[in-house]
């Protein structure tokens, strides 16, 4: 890595994050299966225990705290499956992470059309 200067609001999902978030991501990966989604909904605490989530991860799941889930090692591709259970889309996630309302977040996306066409 080019002694990575930081990119604002961005944490590359690298080996350290992949290790930290393994249990959380594994649980979210299991949500590909409808029976697993139902089992989670029926008893979230038992389901989290079965996957060995740590306290930080369990707290972020309970709080539906997207930035907390990322900090706990969650990868957005797997977290999206958790969001799916909650009926949230990526614009809900975007709004939650940027502290905006969903409408404001969507308006900001549309406003990107005003960027110049050339570099």
């Amino acid at each position: 890595m080019s002694a990575s200067r930081e990119i604002f609001g961005t944490t590359p999902f690298d080996g350290a994050m992949a290790q930290r978030g393994y249990a959380l991501n594994k649980m979210c990966f299991s949500f590909n299966n409808a029976a697993n989604r139902a089992a989670f909904k029926a008893d979230e605490e038992a389901y989290m225990r079965a996957y060995g989530l740590n306290d930080e991860q369990a707290k972020a799941i309970r709080g539906r705290d997207v930035l907390g889930l990322l900090a706990a090692g969650g990868n957005v591709y797997y977290l999206a499956k958790f969001a799916g259970i909650l009926g949230l889309d990526v614009q809900d996630l975007g709004a939650a992470q940027t502290g905006m309302s969903k409408e404001a977040f969507k308006a900001r996306l549309v406003a990107q059309n005003e960027q110049p066409e050339t570099m």
């Binding site: 609001g9 961005t10 999206a80 977040f105 960027q115 110049p116 050339t118």
Partner: peptide, 18 residues
Amino acid sequence: HQLDGQRAGFINKPFDLK
């Protein structure tokens, strides 16, 4: 596009077009 983090919603039109 960027889905995760406080930079969620990032888009770079001039880069994409180039």
